[in-house]
Write a protein that binds this DNA or RNA. Sequence first.
DNA 1: CTTGATTGGAACATCGATGTTCCATTCCGG
DNA 2: CCGGAATGGAACATCGATGTTCCAATCAAG
Lengths: 185, 185
Amino acid sequence: MSGSRARTRQAIVEAAIDLLGRNPAASLGDIAAAAEVGRTTLHRYFTDRADLLRAVSAEASARLERATAQARMADGTGASAVRRLCQEYFDLGTVLSIIFNESLLSADQGWSGAGGCDPAFVAMVERGHRDGTIDPELPVDWVQSLIWSQLYAGWAYRAETGASRHDVLRLVLRTVDGAIAPRPA
Amino acid sequence: MSGSRARTRQAIVEAAIDLLGRNPAASLGDIAAAAEVGRTTLHRYFTDRADLLRAVSAEASARLERATAQARMADGTGASAVRRLCQEYFDLGTVLSIIFNESLLSADQGWSGAGGCDPAFVAMVERGHRDGTIDPELPVDWVQSLIWSQLYAGWAYRAETGASRHDVLRLVLRTVDGAIAPRPA
DNA sequence: CTTGATTGGAACATCGATGTTCCATTCCGG
DNA sequence: CCGGAATGGAACATCGATGTTCCAATCAAG
């Protein structure tokens, strides 16, 4: 039945996001095991490893886009929008790693990772430059790189230290705020 | 002759640091090619892949230690010492990735990556907490994670944008300074 | 020049990951 | 209950990375 197929497929994609986020070289066998399906079943849904990767990438992009929309980058001061964006991205977890690694391989998406293309993001940071809430010395690209690296660092920090979600989010926001703040000097 | 052997060995280790830093799954064949030696020769110097990894790890640790000593973490204010440390680490390049990935696998070294053990580092940050140059709300572990992530981000940023060493170092230092500065509020 | 050291290449066996095929079992709606 | 859909496991072929062996070519010092 079609409902069952959809559920199985989703379970595989989710297991793949989890494992591939931690280790991009995870084997299909491990992914199948994590999804609690046979390796045969996995191949029944995704002919190739590449096929699975495409599905994972699509799911990750969808989640990223949802979080992005949620952040309303066009509202408020530049810095407050950056803060909201960090909050929304924070819970993406291993999806961040997926997007991050993916951007190094296929420069297909109009977004993220590499050349910092997303016009809404550029607009947000440049607005911050003008309204005095983001250090004008920091290029847009750099701010993007800063956000990604801090979100990743926060995720890793949490995994290492076992700190609470709330505490780590607090640290990330405080750090990013301080980093992008214009200098008094 | 012994001089030749040492030179060949060093060339292999250096090529390995370069390739493995970019891609931890690089094949021995690629590494041999990058070192401009035959794969046979590589195996003559390092029986295992594990054997080569040990040598790479040792070399990376040595370079890291040299840079650490150079930074004189005990001198000056906490923040100024952090700044010096970033400067010294900045040129380590792919060595940073090696150390970073390594720390996730083998928690043997008394240093770096994971639990932030190095007593000199702890002393430096706590000094900064006391002398008012480092935000006391940021745990020592977090400052360490911040430094690593920014150095890595800086390296990646440079590779992506082609910005000059000097400009990227400037961005890294400015960002870390701002991030660890105590908040006026 | 001669000799031992060093190297590169070819061939081979092994191993794990991958992808495919086939069959038995289980699940679920009609 | 029945029949098709969905699943899991076993077996097999393939492929790339790895590690080993052997031999010919080259280098470098005496």
